[in-house]
Design a protein around this nucleic acid. Structure first.
Lengths: 130, 130
DNA sequence: TATTGCTTTGGAGCCAACTCCAGGTCAAGC
DNA sequence: GCTTGACCTGGAGTTGGCTCCAAAGCAATA
């Protein structure tokens, strides 16, 4: 697979794919004799994983660490697992916070629906919610 | 309330509070004759709301729009509601995506727990998950 | 009133994460 | 072999969202 195909498949730009590789978000991709990237399914597995994590707000640094450890072999499995667990916690906490925000928005939207709210009541809305 | 007290109360820096006001994330705060900000509970209500939204990933622009409309009075209630509904959708979608990521991480962590995974199996892990 | 410290402003600086570009190389069709 | 278009690299530029700073004014305490 050339870079154009991979970019299309994952809805990423070629620049982003090259960036991912450059900073170590994914392991180095094999090249043709001429130096052109030649992606295989293994690479795509990594891209898929990284894109998923990035879309959930996992920091580039954390993922770079993970990939670096991965490349160091089996001995780092424990440390890699710790990263995954830590990021799991972070995401779970973030979901909880966003859920509370949704509740708050729900109440606010409900008030907007009941009667078009005069602007001056805005604070009261927030007071009620608290 | 002076800015120091408000900053402490919301665990924000004074710079952040001034920034919020400068870009229009919160309505203009009243000042003393000398020009010093004098926050009241109304201001705090806004800060609380904005902090909550920002922590859930709502963009500054969207909130600035909301505040601007709010300041234009009752006639904009409909448009304001639309913003809230749109951001509600965005957050709900983001939660869904993060939930899927948690599932994926759970499976991956589980595999790490079963037997310390040789690095070479990394792709297989992702294949299984897919 | 003098000192010490808090607050003001505009604007510069910073960080994460891309995104774009120039100048060059490679490859595929004619 | 030549042209045309895709791909390469290193590095500069951009965006969003703060964060920091200098120079100056205000406030509280002695």
């Amino acid at each position: 697979m050339n870079i154009a195909e991979v970019a299309k498949r994952f809805d990423l730009t070629q620049d982003t794919l090259r960036y991912y590789e450059k900073v170590g978000l994914i392991p180095r991709v094999n090249r043709t004799s001429g130096g052109t990237r030649n992606y295989n399914e293994y690479d795509c597995g990594w891209i898929d994983f990284i894109k998923c994590m990035r879309n959930s707000g996992v920091q580039v640094d954390a993922l770079v660490d993970y990939v670096r450890l991965f490349e160091q072999g089996d001995a780092t499995a424990d440390e890699r697992k710790k990263i995954l667990v830590r990021e799991h916690h972070r995401i779970a906490e973030q979901i909880a916070e966003m859920q509370r925000t949704l509740d708050r928005l729900n109440k606010k939207i409900e008030l907007y629906e009941k009667d078009v709210i005069p602007a001056e009541k805005e604070l009261i809305i927030d007071k009620k919610i608290k």
